[in-house]
């Protein structure tokens, strides 16, 4: 990047020396907060998608296996006959045992476990869950779980994560603005005499403000690029470290082109904030000069 010529000796004062580092830190934090929020939202969406369009019928166990199987068959018959149901399959007892094995061990053959019927609905078709639930009362111990409680909780979680991320990014932007105000005011104090001289040879406030805003933009852009580069490295390291455990705990998270563009724009946004803040600060301060 070619050195920009300024009428004011910005390179000789320390007022803006820390600005790139502060902006780098803020862009770094903003990038991580954005990616964390995005990842959380995507995970929640994937979980939600898994729950949406499906329901589970739980059939309480009875001492007699034959009776239980009979009730499972009744449930399947009722569910399959309902409008909007695409499929209904009983989850094999072996699968349930396998799912519970990490908690209960493999020797659980004798335990009275409930049977589950996995129900898939046709997409885009309204299902009368109340009627289905009512029909299932004809089978003793059968209960329909349409996952609405979980879905609502996941929606709340998703919204909370998003709002928290927005608040964090806004706080970072405010902190960046405050940093620029501080640096600009220091610069104005340091260069007060030269600013008076520029006024006396006919400079308008906007000309002087342009000097400060271009300087702030250049520093913020430099800091922003450093911050986003550090964030990219950090995210890369996190991705490598989490790869072996990734899908076992959470569904895979991918960063799309739009998100990448938004992240790449962070240094530009930081530079924009710095430019605007410096300009407003200078113009407000100069207005008080003769």
């Amino acid at each position: 990047m070619a050195a920009r010529r300024y009428d004011l000796p910005f390179s000789e004062d320390g007022s803006g020396r820390f600005l790139p580092w502060m902006i780098a830190l803020m862009v770094y934090l903003a990038a991580l907060a954005s990616v964390a929020a995005l990842a959380a939202r995507e995970v929640v969406e994937q979980w939600n998608a898994g729950l949406e369009g499906s329901a589970t019928v739980e059939i309480a166990p009875s001492p007699d296996d034959a009776t239980t199987e009979e009730r499972v068959a009744q449930v399947l018959e009722i569910v399959r006959a309902a409008r909007g149901v695409e499929s209904a399959e009983a989850v094999p007892a072996g699968d349930i045992n396998r799912l519970l094995a990490p908690w209960l061990g493999t020797e659980i053959g004798g335990l009275p476990l409930p049977r589950l019927v996995d129900v898939k609905f046709r997409s885009g078709q309204a299902v009368d869950l109340r009627a289905l639930s009512g029909a299932l009362t004809r089978v003793s111990g059968a209960r329909l779980d349409d996952h609405s409680l979980w879905r609502e909780r996941l929606r709340t979680l998703g919204r909370t994560v998003q709002v928290a991320a927005i608040i964090i990014v806004e706080l970072i932007a405010i902190a960046a603005g405050a940093t620029v105000v501080f640096a600009t005011r220091s610069g104005l104090a340091v260069h007060r005499e030269l600013i008076e001289l520029m006024h006396l040879i006919g400079s308008r406030d906007s000309y002087i403000a342009r000097q400060f805003q271009n300087h702030a933009m250049s520093l913020a852009l430099r800091g922003g690029l450093l911050g986003i580069a550090l964030a990219a490295v950090t995210l890369g390291v996190i991705a490598i470290i989490s790869r072996p455990i990734g899908d076992a705990l959470v569904p895979g998270v991918s960063i799309g082109a739009a998100t990448l563009a938004a992240l790449a724009a962070l240094p530009l946004i930081a530079a924009g904030i710095a430019t605007l803040t410096a300009r407003v600060t200078v113009l407000r301060t100069l207005r008080q000069m003769p």
Binding site: D7, E12, G202
Partner: peptide, 28 residues
């Protein structure tokens, strides 16, 4: 205040202590 720069541009001032900008060349 807004009208002062245009008036100041019609006035040339040689200051007592020169008040040159040390980081700029003679030309600048």
């Amino acid at each position: 205040r807004r009208a002062l720069p245009a008036l100041r541009r019609r006035i040339g001032v040689v200051f007592q202590e020169f008040r040159l900008l040390d980081h700029l060349s003679t030309r600048d």
